[in-house]
Design a binder for these strands. Sequence first.
DNA 1: TGAGTATTTGAATTCACGTTCAACTAGTTC
DNA 2: GAACTAGTTGAACGTGAATTCAAATACTCA
Lengths: 201, 201
Amino acid sequence: MAQRKSRTDRRIDLIEAARRAIIRHGIDGVQLSHVAEEAGLTSGAVLYHYPDLSELLVEAQHAGMERFYEQRLRQLATVTDPVRKLVMTIRSGLPTGPLDPDVRLLNELGGAAGRNRVYGVLLTSLYDRQVSMYQSILDTGAALGVFRLSGDSLSLARNLVALEDAYGYRITARHPVIGPDEAAELILSYARTATGNDLVA
Amino acid sequence: MAQRKSRTDRRIDLIEAARRAIIRHGIDGVQLSHVAEEAGLTSGAVLYHYPDLSELLVEAQHAGMERFYEQRLRQLATVTDPVRKLVMTIRSGLPTGPLDPDVRLLNELGGAAGRNRVYGVLLTSLYDRQVSMYQSILDTGAALGVFRLSGDSLSLARNLVALEDAYGYRITARHPVIGPDEAAELILSYARTATGNDLVA
DNA sequence: TGAGTATTTGAATTCACGTTCAACTAGTTC
DNA sequence: GAACTAGTTGAACGTGAATTCAAATACTCA
């Protein structure tokens, strides 16, 4: 028998297991048995904690998203220079490679968000928060005179996040030429014209 | 009994039916019975033409993609002015609204491309062709002296397609603020700095 | 027209999955 | 340490989907 755990601990495990199962089988392809296998439990045990699989899937997506976002914020807090902040943030929004689990998970939402309102809301809220993140970097840099913005910071921030998203898809789809480094450079080239700064940290 | 059709005609029908089924249920959620229902046939009939459902799904994705791309090319051929070409192309890469079937279909590929090599190749090839399309517009405009490019045309084109992709996701996810018009304006703002042209047709 | 062929159906079969639940086990409490 | 509680298992059951195939139907062309 699998190690017995408290309700809360097991739920955390299951959310992690669901995350892995979604990445492996797709958000519309995950089955109860997949989650059970990832967690090292039987289907019955999963059902004991989550009588409705779809709720577990939503929680898994939610948790993955929060982790991704919080991680970026935390990293951002370690520096003050707007130039370094911007460069670092661009980098942290891209997958480390085609297998990056955080981005793989987020990518699963893309299609589902068009069919499922909950997923649509989740994805939209992540996008908006990331935009705010970039916007505050841009505004700060402009206020300090380091950046000379080529347009309103909201539009620039929206485009920066959009580029991140799109290159995330390209990288996980294994584009033969566009990897993490190339994508970062492409986004940076936009960021340079947007800020009027060379962005060499 | 459903109207009897020739092998080729029926296969075309089935590809269309599969397209609709994918949009409705997700690429990993489609079932044989969904396709049969969309086509007005029984599962057996579908299986008679496509013994393997996954092959039909790939064909449906492939067909949808080709149609999307050809449509853009055809539209592009109707004008010569680089400025109008660019503006029109940006517009034609965005969904008409959250329900746009062509973009909804493409979006289904995003997640699957990370798991399934065939889908990854399909999606990558579409991306690359769209990049070429933009690149040729940019190069022509530059040669005519209409555009003063802010960087190499390949990078600019890659970013333009990336922005289209990303806003396609935002729109189908029903972002409350970013609709087709707003997305077009955001991409245009990038295109303006990229080309040094006001892009007013 | 009639024989032959291609397409479609519907029923039978098999399989895989979700769901339920009694029994078991390992902690927890008194 | 006995009674209780919470977590887990495994087997049984029901459902629905894929698959198979003989029979029915519509088309082709000699």
